[in-house]
Design a protein around this nucleic acid. Structure first.
Length: 889
DNA sequence: CTTCAAGAATCTGAGATGGTACA
DNA sequence: CTGTACCATCTCAGATTCTTGAA
């Protein structure tokens, strides 16, 4: 490929310690030592002075904006307006010939507005369900509940059709990887014939044929052939594989439409609200108050999460909740005291939700303590009800649905300082839900007495149902699970795109380095941003509204988020996605430093955008010119996977499985750190760490004792092995030993006592006589012996060999076992510590090409299960099945 | 065999991206 | 025609809940 330094901006980041707050030198030597630097220095004086080499730029920045900031600004949405720091740029920036290439990539979509997209789009806001809607009309609670139960049955009946079809699919497809020949084929035909939908729709197999033929002119050939074979039934040849696994023919990506036929059972609604028992009430000013069920439900939202102090003690959360709560109180007749008198609920601090909390907590507890038989029964019951919704038929193939459950109402838990956190998230009504389904399919019936908002047949979408949520007006989609074909394919494409970037990265880097000195502000900002995205793995950073948490990414970095320190240190401190803090110090390329200083130059001040001439859209537009399909996020994928690949290559073969797994996890961790994937460290972490090291010391102590026993057996061994061998480990001293011995004795005592008590209970339960106290004393004799032994050892400084016929040999074996145990435990402990606030999962699931793991697993002979859980293996089945050992990212 | 924490699975909020209508 | 605001859809994220397996 390219020069090696071009290849590794991230891998050379010694960023491993980032989490611990130590500063590090993240920027690749390549960047820092780039010879361009010298040249740059000539053009751009290194000190406070203002980039004389780029007069235009200077002028641009310093002068204009005082005059034009207000007058010349383009109209912008108030909430996200960027102040103009320069004169409207369009005139001097854009005429550039560079711009010539605005032509869209050839694959630009020909607007195929297919079915009725416009109608759908023109729908106004979803009607939000007001309290009145939920309340007065449907007041009759019990009937409502019953109604819903009945509905459920109806739904199930309707869903049955789909379910039947799906079941059949299951029968034949569940075994897909195995090559079940002829019989399967036949069955398929049958099933499609007698499936209930056959009248309305082309049966599955037929559909497939259609699909296979349509794209045939291009690339559908393999598939078409396979289908044909299937039709003429060709058992063993195993077209089934070609048919069932898209990765056997991944190139057949057809364009616009995601499916030809689609049937599913819709969504599952959460159960209706069950009012609290009469004796459970929230208190206001110490008085239990009675609420309308709708208000009570809202009170319950808050009450049931009292243990989540993080939310419940957040003032914004309280305020938003309480406003909504008062609102619904107003609509439902307020709160009533014990005598039926009205009570004005005005003060949040006088509300006591504890009774509600205790009730729900007791419920949870009760549920937890249910006999496991009962638990199992309930689970089976639930599974049965949900079975029809769990899968859909996508082009005739059974696929798992991801989130078929409509989100239940509750309090919105916005992360960070979300202005809307705590607001009531309303119950979603069928009337808000749009169903997307094949024209040929049976539309799942809405709950009795309800209707869907709309039913559409949008083949360009991958979603099955959709609604709009009431807090932010966002859309929620029901889509397929991660192990489905669509998701898998798109995952595959994501990584392929990242791999393609490999071939362009050298050019891209060269180009943006050049542009770091560009005369045009836009270009210079863009290049600087690209550097940050490439080097620090920042996200693109779209603008956000006032009604969201104030988090940023690259393009939305603000003045106060970076601090510059001579000669070239940049300190980043900002909240990124999910309000996770990004706080790092980096030495950067000289030119970057200069640019950032320029972008922060007065009159810019706190709150102003650093990249005021840059938007994610323009950035991505530029990127896609450099490589079709390239966007900012691809860099994260690329750098994560590429880095991981390099790290894996550094791992030497050999060692135990545990060591290899650790090496893998270490690499994983490096990537997670690059991506700034964090988790909150649990309160119990330190304690559990302590416990662990105690345990390790315990085993070390055991090992030491065994060594002493060797001396006991063979006094000459001391010379043979060397005195050092028999010394106490560094972290163990006499004091500790005494403590530990006491601990061991106590532990033994407890254990024996407990056992004794239990045995007695058992005897009692069986109606037999309990053992006497004397028995216990007798049993505790063992402890006494132990105590004596320790005493003796402490005194004599010798350890008598234990066990029957102890020999040096047997002791050595024992010692070996103990030492491997120590080693394993130490590895575990290290792992845990370095892991405490890094979340490995996100990068493993989303950024690291799974094929790397597959190759590693094969080369190092470590079972996949060590790296991928069951779901992950399903999600990455395409990689597991199709990756050869010599594959490289 | 019970307990409890680690790890897996689920949930749903937060971003990225690209299209479209419109000024 | 150009740049935005808004919409729509999909990926990615940490917290929460559930399960499991080791002590």
């Amino acid at each position: 490929m390219s020069s090696s330094d071009d290849d590794m901006p991230l891998a050379s980041k010694p960023k491993t310690n980032g989490v611990n707050g130590a500063s590090h030198a993240p920027i690749s030597e390549a960047h820092i030592s780039a010879k361009t630097d010298a040249a740059l220095d000539k053009q751009l004086p290194s000190n406070g002075d203002v980039v004389p080499a780029v007069p235009n730029l200077e002028q641009d920045v310093s002068m204009e904006d005082a005059q034009h900031a207000t007058t010349n600004g383009v109209k912008r949405k108030a909430s996200s307006a960027r102040p103009d720091f320069t004169e409207a740029e369009s005139s001097d920036d854009e005429p550039l010939s560079k711009k010539q290439k605005t032509s869209r990539p050839s694959h630009a979509i020909e607007s195929d507005s297919d079915d009725e997209p416009l109608a759908a789009k023109s729908n106004g806001r979803v009607r939000t369900i007001s309290a009145a809607d939920i309340g007065e009309e449907e007041d009759s609670d019990t009937p409502l509940t019953k109604k819903l139960v009945d509905q459920k049955q109806d739904i199930m009946k309707a869903a049955e059709k789909t379910a039947q079809v799906i079941k059949k699919e299951k029968a034949k497809e569940i075994t897909k990887p195995q090559k079940k020949p002829a019989a399967k084929k036949v069955k398929k035909e049958e099933s499609s014939d007698d499936e209930p939908l056959s009248k309305k729709a082309p049966p599955a197999s037929k559909t497939k044929k259609v699909k296979a033929e349509a794209p045939a002119p291009t690339k559908g050939k393999g598939k078409g052939k396979a289908v044909k074979k299937e039709e003429t039934e060709e058992p063993e040849d195993d077209e089934a594989e070609g048919e069932t696994n898209w990765w056997d023919n991944p190139m057949k990506g057809d364009g616009e439409n995601k499916w030809d036929t689609l049937q599913h059972s819709g969504v599952v609604f959460p159960p209706p609200y069950e009012p609290l028992p009469k004796n459970v009430k929230m208190k206001y000013d110490g008085v239990p108050v009675t609420l309308h069920p709708d208000a009570e439900e809202v009170a319950g939202f808050f009450g049931s999460m009292l243990n989540s102090t993080h939310n419940v003690e957040n003032p914004t959360f309280q305020k938003n909740f309480f406003n909504d709560f008062k609102e619904i109180l107003k609509k439902t007749g307020g709160a009533k005291g014990p005598n039926g008198d009205k009570i004005a609920v005005k003060d949040f601090s006088k509300c006591d939700f504890k009774p509600i909390f205790e009730y729900y907590d007791a419920q949870r507890e009760a549920k937890r303590n249910l006999p496991k038989e009962e638990k199992k029964r309930l689970k089976v019951e639930k599974d049965e009800i949900e079975a029809p919704y769990m899968f859909c038929l996508w082009d005739g193939k059974k696929q798992k649905v991801g989130n078929f459950r409509v989100e239940p109402p509750g309090l919105f838990r916005g992360r960070g300082e979300h202005p809307k956190t705590g607001h009531v998230k309303a119950r979603v009504q069928p009337e808000q839900i749009t169903i997307n389904i094949g024209k040929e399919a049976t539309v799942p019936p809405p709950p009795e007495g309800h209707r869907w908002k709309e039913v559409k047949h949008d083949r360009t979408g991958t979603w099955l149902a959709m609604w709009q949520e009431n807090i932010n007006g966002n859309f929620k989609y029901v889509m397929l699970a991660a192990n489905s074909d669509v998701k898998g394919k798109s995952d595959f494409e994501k990584f392929e795109k990242a791999r393609r970037l490999k071939g362009h990265i050298a050019d891209i880097r060269k180009s943006y380095r050049q542009e770091l000195k560009d005369d045009l502000m836009v270009n210079r900002q863009r290049a600087t941003a690209m550097y940050l995205i490439d080097t620090l793995a920042l996200r693109a950073g779209n603008e956000k509204g006032d009604d969201e948490a104030e988090t940023v990414g690259c393009c939305s970095l603000k003045y106060e988020h970076i601090t510059l320190r001579e000669p070239n240190i940049v300190e980043f401190d900002f909240l990124g996605k999910d309000s996770i803090r990004f706080h790092e110090e980096y030495p950067v390329d000289k030119q970057i430093f200069k640019n950032l200083r320029l972008f922060k130059k007065a009159p810019k001040k706190e709150g102003d955008d650093i990249f005021d001439r840059l938007t994610t859209t323009s950035l991505n537009k530029h990127l896609s010119n450099q490589m079709p399909g390239l966007t900012a996020k691809v860099f994260r994928t690329y750098n994560a996977s590429w880095t991981f690949a390099q790290l894996l290559k550094e791992i030497k073969p050999g060692g135990t499985v545990a060591e290899r797994v650790k090496a893998y996890n270490d690499a994983n961790r490096r990537v997670a750190i690059i991506c700034n994937h964090k988790r909150t460290v649990g309160a119990s972490h330190a304690q559990s760490m302590e416990k662990m090291s105690e345990k390790i010391k315990g085993v070390k102590y055991q090992a030491w004792r065994v060594k002493q026993m060797m001396i006991d057996i063979d006094s000459k061994i001391k010379k043979k092995k060397g005195a050092e061998f028999f010394e106490l480990p560094d972290d163990i001293d006499q004091e500790w030993i005494l403590e530990h011995q006491a601990f061991l004795i106590e532990e033994q005592t407890n254990k024996i006592t407990k056992k004794f008590e239990k045995d007695n209970e058992k005897l009692k339960a069986e109606g037999q006589k309990e053992m006497k106290q004397k028995e216990l004393t007798e049993r505790l004799g063992a402890v006494k012996e132990l105590e004596q032994k320790f005493k003796k050892e402490n005194k004599s400084k010798k350890v008598e060999a234990e066990g029957k016929s102890p020999s040096i040999d047997s002791l050595q074996k024992k010692l070996d076992a103990l030492e491997t145990r120590v080693a394993n435990m130490s590895i575990q402990a290290e792992d845990k510590e370095s892991n405490k606030e890094v979340a490995l999962g996100t990068s493993k699931i989303n950024y690291i090409d799974p094929r790397l793991t597959v190759v590693f697993s094969k080369k190092f002979d470590v079972p996949m299960e060590k790296f991928f859980s069951k779901t992950l293996r399903e999600k990455f089945q395409w990689a597991i099945d199709s990756t050869k050992e010599d594959w490289d990212f």
